[in-house]
Amino acid sequence: MGTQCPNQSVPAWLPQAARLYLAHTEAGVSLRELARIEGCHPSTVMRQVRRVETRRDDPLIDDALTRLGGRAGASAPKKESPQMSPTTRPLPPAADEPAIDREALRLLRRLNEPGAFMAVARDMEKAAILRESADGQTTRTAVVDRSVAEAFALKDWIACRTRGRVTIYDISSAGRAAFKRLQAEEAERRDGFAEAQSPFAAQHRDWEVQKNARAERIRFNRAESPLAILARRKEKDGHPFLSHDLVAAGERLREDFEVAQLGPRVAQNWDRFLTGGDRGSFFGADGASGGSAAARDRVAAALRELGPGLGDVALRCCCFLEGLEQAEQRMGWSARSGKIVLRIALQRLKRHYETLGDRSGLIG
């Protein structure tokens, strides 16, 4: 039975330990009373409350508990935090469960990539997921609402690595397990099941199978995209096969593509952008829109700019995460030609984004 703070409707996603902490510190419910409600020993409740209290030096957790505690209308004193000041900025509303569910799979997938981490600035309402390559170059791969990042921290999906004006977080073992579980649930829903049949068994597996626009099954490494693999390969002169700016252009397309899937029109017909398809107007006559309409427009414009062939390989490798060998076979290309075509596509894609400039729509 979950504990609810008096006069407070706490979010359904809030972990049990945080619920107990707020009930005790904000609503004034004694540890013995909480233990009676939960049907456990008071020492069990005390350990959970103390564990949450010791984590308040994490700025995300401190902000989240401050906001959730304020909703109770209580004025109990809180542990002083070095991140707080007399002129603390107004806090945005707490994330709701649909927002977390909508973003969790996309963001955890990004955090699970090699070299990925989340950076949270003290006075910013957005956090960024960055990925550092072997040569020290850093690429931004996603933008996160601060309230969603706070929920990730409370759920133990991310762990604080370093603190300061910019705090760095890494995905935790619990976050990796949640990522695999969410993947399994998504796959089961996509295959026609109402819910995942064995999500907790699937969280220990390493591979993902998905279908592209033509219902072709693609199996790929959950932690790496084809671009990340190619970026590690070296030319004869020792330079990487894909430069940092080309990888960034491909990741920019992938970010828009992932955001485009979050709107009301989830089942996008990207098949029209493959060779032989209609590359005209992306939307129908109704001009349907939604929260992801701008992202869909940006993906459509980029693929039209690339044209047949280049657009195909960019869509397959950057967005569907299809391997180069598989893409070559499906498109009837000779072996080892795909990486050359992909590099040309990324060069044109980079030029396309440079031409857009500030009109690209992404947050810097």
Rank of each mutant, 00 (worst) to 15 (best):
T138N: 00
R181P: 07
R122E: 14
D170H: 15
A184T: 03
W157E: 00
G192F: 02
D145E: 13
A121R: 14
G164C: 00
D145L: 12
L182A: 09
E150M: 08
G115K: 06
R146L: 09
Q137S: 13
A184V: 04
G175T: 02
A184W: 10
F117W: 08
W157A: 00
S147V: 01
A128V: 10
G164M: 02
S172Q: 05
R140A: 06
A153R: 07
F152E: 00
G192E: 01
D145S: 11
D191L: 14
R140T: 08
R146Y: 07
Q183K: 08
M124H: 15
V143G: 00
D191N: 15
G192C: 02
A177P: 07
A142T: 04
R190C: 13
E150R: 12
R131F: 03
A184M: 05
R190H: 11
W157R: 05
P114H: 00
R181D: 09
R165V: 12
I171G: 08
A187R: 11
E125A: 12
R181T: 07
D145Q: 13
A177N: 09
D135C: 06
A149E: 04
D135M: 01
E188Q: 13
A116K: 06
S147W: 01
F117D: 01
V148K: 04
T167Y: 05
D123V: 10
D156M: 08
L130R: 11
R181K: 13
Q137H: 12
G115P: 02
T167H: 06
S172W: 01
T139S: 06
M124T: 15
G192S: 01
K126T: 13
R181S: 11
Q183G: 12
S147Q: 09
T139L: 04
S147N: 12
F152W: 05
R122V: 11
D170N: 12
A151M: 01
Q137V: 13
R165N: 13
K126D: 12
A153S: 09
L182I: 04
K126Y: 14
F117A: 08
T167R: 07
E150Y: 04
T141V: 15
A116Y: 02
E188A: 14
R190D: 11
A178T: 08
R181I: 06
A178E: 15
E125W: 09
G175A: 04
F117Q: 02
P114F: 01
P114S: 06
R146K: 06
D191R: 12
R176E: 09
R163F: 10
D123T: 14
R165E: 13
T141L: 02
S133C: 08
S133P: 00
A149Q: 00
M124G: 11
A134D: 11
G115R: 01
I129E: 05
L130I: 07
D156A: 14
R140L: 04
D170W: 05
A127C: 09
A119M: 03
V120P: 00
K155C: 15
R140W: 03
A153M: 01
A184F: 03
R161P: 08
E150G: 09
